[in-house]
Simulated assay, not measured.
Amino acid sequence: MKRTVAAPEFAHYPEAWHLSPVLDTGDFVFLSGQTGWRPDDTVASDPEEQFRDVFEFLKANLAAAGLSFADVVEMTSYHIELKKHLPAFVKVKDEYVSAPYPAWSAIGVSEFISDGTLVEVRVIARR
C-alpha cells in the first residue's frame, strides 16, 4: 500500500512538483523535506520564525495522515549556515518534539531551490 497525503495548503504539490508531501505506506509514513516557504510564496527573514513555519507545516502534514510529532521516529534536517542557526533551530524544534526523541541528523548544505530558505526537514513516522 502506498498513498499520497497532503495538508490542504500542500495539496498542489503532487501535481506541481511530482512528489508526495506525505507518503503513507501503512506502518511507516514518510514526509518529504519541508521548508519554511509559505503557500503565498514568501519566506520569513527571521530564522526563528522560518523554523517555526517549518514545524507548523510538518505538523499540518502529519495531521493530514492522522499522526503527530509523537509518531516521528526519524528526522533529518538540512541547514544553510548550520552552526550559526542551530541554537534557534533547536529552540523551535523543542517546542514541537519531545521525549522520547526521534533519531535526528543535522546536515550543513550550500543551497536550496528557494531563495532565503535556511532549513529543510524531512521525517519518518510510524503508526
Rank of each mutant, 00 (worst) to 15 (best):
R126E: 12
S20A: 15
V29L: 02
D41R: 09
L67P: 00
G66C: 05
Q50M: 14
A70V: 04
S45N: 13
L62E: 03
R38G: 03
R3Y: 13
S98W: 07
V22H: 02
F30M: 07
P14Q: 05
K59G: 13
V97S: 05
T25H: 09
V90Y: 09
F89R: 02
L82P: 03
L31M: 09
A11C: 08
V123F: 01
F28W: 08
D53Y: 05
F112S: 09
F51P: 01
Q34D: 04
P14W: 04
I80Y: 14
S114G: 14
T4R: 09
T4V: 15
L86T: 04
L67C: 00
D53L: 02
A60E: 10
P102F: 05
V54I: 11
D53I: 00
V73R: 07
T25Q: 11
V22N: 02
E56T: 03
F89M: 06
A16G: 04
F30G: 01
V90G: 10
I107M: 10
E56S: 04
V119C: 10
F10A: 06
L31R: 00
H85Q: 05
D24M: 00
Y96S: 04
W37Q: 06
G26H: 07
D40C: 05
T25S: 13
W37R: 09
E111F: 09
P47L: 03
L62V: 03
M1L: 14
T76A: 11
K59P: 01
Y101M: 07
I113V: 14
V119W: 02
S77L: 00
A44L: 11
F57M: 06
D41N: 14
F28M: 11
R38A: 11
S98D: 12
T117K: 02
E49G: 02
V22I: 08
A103E: 14
L19Q: 15
Y101Q: 08
Y96D: 05
H79P: 02
P14F: 04
A88W: 03
D46A: 08
K84S: 10
L31G: 00
L31F: 04
F69V: 01
E120S: 15
V22C: 04
E49I: 07
D71I: 00
E95M: 10
V123A: 08
S32I: 04
W104F: 09
K84H: 13
I107S: 08
K2E: 15
M1V: 13
V97K: 03
I107H: 10
G116L: 01
D115V: 08
H85E: 11
A64L: 06
Q34A: 11
L31H: 01
R126K: 14
I113Y: 14
S68N: 06
P87Q: 08
I124T: 13
R122A: 14
K93I: 05
A88G: 09
S114A: 14
S98G: 11
P14G: 04
G36P: 02
G26N: 05
D71T: 01
A7L: 05
Y101C: 03
A16S: 10
S77I: 01
G36N: 01
F30H: 11
T25G: 12
A99E: 15
L23A: 10
